[in-house]
Structures are given as C-alpha cells and as structure tokens.
C-alpha cells in the first residue's frame, strides 16, 4: 500500500509544484501592494527608531524616549486612555446590561445597538466640533447654564481643551464601543445560573459577586483593554481640540513630523511611534487572551 501511495504522487509530482507556483502568482498584486503600503511603512518606523542620524545602528532615538517631555506625554496619554476606558467600560456595561434585561428582539435593543454601532465610529474632527457646539465657550449648554442658572462652566479655567475635556469627549465614543463588545458576553449569561443560585439559597448579591461577576470579569477586562487601545491610538479628536502644546504622544508625533526637526532628533518621532505600537500590541495581546477565556466560559 505504501509503495502505491509513494508511486502515484511521483508521477504527478512535477505538475502540482508547477501549479502551486502559478497559483502563487495570483496573490502577487495583493502581496506587492501590502508590502509597499503596509510592510515598508512598518519597517520604516521600526528600523528608523534604531537608526543613527548618519546611518548605522544607534540607540540614541530610543534613549531620547527617556526625555521628560516625552515621558510626560506617554504618562498623560496612558492616563487619558485609562480613565476614559474605565468610565466608558463601566457606563457601557451598565447600558449593555439594561439592554439585556429588555426584550431580546425588541425595538429598544435593536435601535440602541444600531446607534451604538454608529456612535462608536463617531470621532475625530466632527466629534470635536460637536462638543465645541455643546460646551464650547459659546456652546449651547454653556450659554444655557449661564443664562438660566448663572453657572459658569469654566469658572476655574477652560478645561475643555485639556485632559478633563478630552476625557469627556473620548467617553462619547468609548461607551458605544463598550456596548458593542460587551453585549455578546452578557448574552452568554444563562438564566439557569441565577435559578441555580437561588435554589441553593443564594441572594442577588451573592449571585453577582460569586457567579455572574467572576464569569463576566475576563470579558469586562478584555473590553476595557480594547477601549484603552482605542483611545490611546486616537489622534484626530485631540488634534482638533488641542491647538496649543502637545500634551499627548500622538500630538508629539505630529510635532516631530511637521515642525522643523532639531538636529540629531530626526528619528525621535519614529521612536515614539514604535513606543505606541509596543503599548498597543501588549494591550491587544492581553485582549486576545482574555477574549479566548471569555468565549470558553460564555461562548
């Protein structure tokens, strides 16, 4: 039998290999395109971060990440992303739970999910202008509060263009994103588990802390990490709101790209970009691991 098997492929061996090569030709356009516009740019960032200003390998640019203004930018970026992810995750989870308690195929759930899908996309310049129209210096809410209750939103300075304002604006797309990614996990919770808890004499508190809470923990943590990566890599909203200074890493990179670059600092922008990729990759890897656990428990 073994001989027969060995003999048959031998006769046609040449043709499949040839066909394999011609088959590969069909993917050439795709690979060529992706190489030019994705692989090369990625390599430019990664290699550029380790390149000396006159060529050769050098760690100067990566070491420049230790400068206090860059470290501060990373710190602020991480703080902004963490807070907006946390607020978005908690409020988004509450909203998702409110949807789960509604009728599964009801109008309410369908409308809110569709709206969340759209609003999670809503970002960038448009979102910045929406908030300028709302709580900008002459915004709708600012003026209304001033006229009706004589409350001045900006008594202690204009915070809209700083971290607190950015956090508020980011929450606007974080909550809908949380609803989208957390809803499937909540749908995985079975009513039988609650019934089982009750028939064993458990209270609502015990059900949430001992049964549903631990089961949902990986999903919640994973979704929060996704939200973190989402706001960490956001640029347009911040760019449109913040016009003075560069408090965040993406804005620092903008500075490195657009302004006259200091001599000997040509590759610092690439090093910062690499730093962003590292942070996002770590977060996304954790997200993938937690996602696997979620689908095992609640799939």
């Amino acid at each position: 039998m073994a001989e027969v098997v060995a003999a048959v492929p031998q006769r046609v061996a040449k043709r499949p290999r040839l066909r394999g090569i011609t088959a590969l030709l069909g993917t050439v356009p795709f690979f060529a395109y992706v190489t030019i516009f994705l692989i090369i740019p990625t390599l430019v960032v990664v290699l550029g971060a380790f390149a000396g200003n006159e060529g050769g390998v050098s760690l100067d640019s990566v070491k420049a990440l230790g400068n206090s203004y860059i470290l501060d930018a990373f710190g602020r970026s991480i703080a902004l992303s963490a807070i907006s992810a946390l607020v978005g995750a908690v409020l988004g989870a509450l909203l998702a739970y409110a949807l789960v308690t509604a009728k599964p195929d009801g109008v309410l759930r369908r409308v809110v999910t569709a709206a969340a899908g759209v609003l999670a996309q809503f970002g960038g310049v448009t979102l910045a202008f929406a908030f300028l129209a709302t709580i900008g210096l002459s915004g709708f809410v600012t003026v209304w509060l001033q006229d009706t209750f004589s409350i001045n939103l900006y008594e202690n300075g204009v915070w809209l263009f700083e971290l607190p304002g950015l956090t508020l604006v980011y929450t606007y797309f974080q909550i809908p994103l949380m609803v989208i990614v957390f809803l499937p996990a909540l749908d995985g919770i079975r009513p039988q588990w609650r019934e089982a808890t009750e028939s064993l004499g458990g209270t609502t508190w015990q059900y949430w802390t001992r049964v549903a809470g631990p089961l949902l923990a990986p999903a919640f943590l994973g979704s929060a990490l996704l939200l973190f990566a989402n706001s960490f890599s956001a640029y347009a909203t911040a760019a449109a709101l913040v016009s003075q200074g560069s408090p965040l890493v993406p804005l620092q990179i903008r500075g490195a790209l657009t302004s006259e670059v200091l001599l000997g600092q040509q590759n610092v922008g690439k090093a910062m970009a690499l730093g962003m990729v590292v942070v996002v990759s770590v977060v996304m890897t954790l997200y993938t691991l937690l996602q696997k656990r979620t689908s095992k428990w609640l799939g």
Binding site: G48, I253, V277, M284
Partner: peptide
C-alpha cells in the same frame, strides 16, 4: 495588522513612501 498600528504611526512610516 493595521488594527494594531495606529493611523498616526502609519503616517510616520508612510511619509517616505
């Protein structure tokens, strides 16, 4: 892959291209 590469990072690499 583009999901893990923020647009702002992609721009840095795209500039020479």
């Amino acid at each position: 892959l583009p999901l893990t590469i923020p647009a702002i990072v992609l721009v840095v690499g795209l500039a020479p291209v």
